[in-house]
Every structure is written in C-alpha cells, then in structure tokens.
Simulated scan of single mutants.
Amino acid sequence: MTRVVLVHGIAQQVKGAETLLADWYPALCDGLALASGPRPEPYEVAMAFYGDLFRPAGHRGLGLGVPELDASDVEEGLETDLLLGWWHAAAQQDPQVTGPEATTRLRTPYAVQRALNALSHSAFFAGLSERLMIASARQVRRYFTEPDLRARVQDRLTRTVTADTEVIVAHSLGTVVAYETLCAHPEWSDLHLITLGSPLAVPRLVFDRLLPQPAPHPRWPAPVTRWTNIADRADAVALTKTLAPAFGARVTDHLVHNGPQAHDVRPYLTARETGAAVAGALTV
C-alpha cells in the first residue's frame, strides 16, 4: 500500500531506494509533525529510484561513481549553460561568489572553469568537487537528449505508483520526471503533486525541453488535483522560483528558507509548508 511516492533528483547514482528513504522518511515525518499532519507508516512510503541508470559500469572515478571530469569535458550547449546559470544564481545570493562578467558569454573551457571555481567557493555548492558539479549538469543533459534513458527513468516512477498512491513528492530533476510521467498517464486520478527545488519553469534550459512540449501552453498533468511548489529563495537549481506563471494559477507556490544548503531535500521536507501540503493530500 504505497500512499506516498518520493522522486529524487540528480547525483544519486551510487545510492539506492532504501538508502534514500533512510534520509527522506524521517525528514518527511518532521515536516508533517510541524503541520500537525498524519504520519504515514514506513510501508506506505516508496522511493521511485532511478539513480543507478546514470551509474557507469566501469570508470576511473576513484570509487565515487563519477568519472574524472574537468572543464574541458563540459559539452557546449545545455551542460555549459547549466553551469553558467548556476554560477549566476549563486553569485546573486552569495557575496563570497564573484559573479560572471561579460567575457563569460563566450562558451569556452575558460569560462566554464571560472564558473566551476566560483561555484566551489559558494555556500550552495560547498563540498562538491568539480567533477560532481559537471556530472550533475551531465545527468540533466542526458535526461533531455537520450530518449531511451528518459523513458527508463520515467518507467521507474510508473512502476512505483499504485492504486493507493495519494501524493507524489519530487525534488530537483525528479520534478521533471514526475511532471512528464504524470502527463503521460491521464488514466491515473486524484493525485497531489508536491515539487521541491524544481527547475521546471527555467526557460530554455528546462521548460522548453519538456514533453509534452509547452508551446503554446504547458499541459496540466491530468491526474493532478492539487499542485504545491516549494522553493528556497537561494536555491540555484530552482532558477525560476514560482511555477504558477508558467503552469497556471492552480499551482500553489511557497518560498521557504533552508539555510546554507538551499537545494538539500531534507530541509525542504522538514519545512512546515511541505508538511502541510503532504498532510492535505493524506487527509482528503
């Protein structure tokens, strides 16, 4: 009986469903406690895990599940634009981060290296190596440009949702997976969608790459009766904080403060706003 389905984001390739649940479930319960909501039993919560689909079979990544990458490995286009976008967002929020200059408009390894150097000194990306930042951008690029991989990722969510599912809670790239999968399954019904740190409305990099294509208007996922979006003001991944302007007034947007790790899923889950949204789904 799976009432709550969780969908993770990027950079989880060396973990697994149970490993992630060990972090997500207590945080989810903490948010529900703040909102005085019902606490689902562990067997009622499932993780739609797809991280292993990004895990290479063999690499020289020193046991971290990430190949050795540097600025010269960053591909032109989406990978470069994501890193520069994250840099721009981090510089706006963190006075310790030197912002991009006009020269960074040149898509060169030098501009990418400057972005990586700046991000490594930001509070948002503190502790992440250059190769992990590059690998994160690469996972986003691969999801959007490799149709077979995209389908396999969405299939993991499809197989996790059951007739008992009431709410899907998705984070980061997982919000894209959730949105596209829900649009592909109009036969599902009465689901609540909660998106955390979502890049769904980021123009050009994400929004314009969605399937179904958003032009002239994005499609409302038919199974969704309520959509709550929650973003931290300093979340560099959720470059566009509110989704209602892009997806319609039926989306309820909330801004929260997660502390220095603005994109971390745990403070998102412990937020009262998240707890209230999940509680609303479970008590209907």
Rank of each mutant, 00 (worst) to 15 (best):
Q13F: 05
V14I: 15
A17G: 09
E18T: 15
T19K: 06
T19Q: 13
A22R: 13
L28S: 01
D30M: 06
L34K: 15
R39G: 00
R39I: 15
A48I: 01
A48D: 00
F49K: 00
F54L: 11
V66C: 09
D73A: 12
L82S: 07
G85N: 14
Q92F: 05
D94C: 03
Q96N: 02
E101M: 09
A102G: 00
Q113K: 13
S122T: 12
F125L: 01
E130D: 11
M133C: 11
I134L: 08
A135R: 09
L149F: 12
L149I: 07
R152G: 01
Q154I: 03
T158V: 11
D164M: 12
T165G: 00
I168R: 05
S172L: 03
G174I: 11
T175E: 09
V176Y: 10
Y179I: 05
C183P: 04
A184R: 10
P186F: 08
P186C: 09
E187C: 03
S189W: 01
L193W: 03
L193K: 02
S198Q: 04
P199W: 01
R204F: 07
L205D: 12
F207H: 13
D208Y: 02
L211Q: 14
P214D: 06
P218C: 02
W227H: 01
N229E: 04
N229V: 07
R233E: 15
V237M: 02
A238C: 08
P245L: 12
A249H: 12
L255E: 06
V256Q: 02
Q261V: 04
A262Q: 08
A262V: 05
D264F: 07
T270V: 14
V278H: 04
A279L: 06
A281T: 12
L282C: 07
T283W: 09
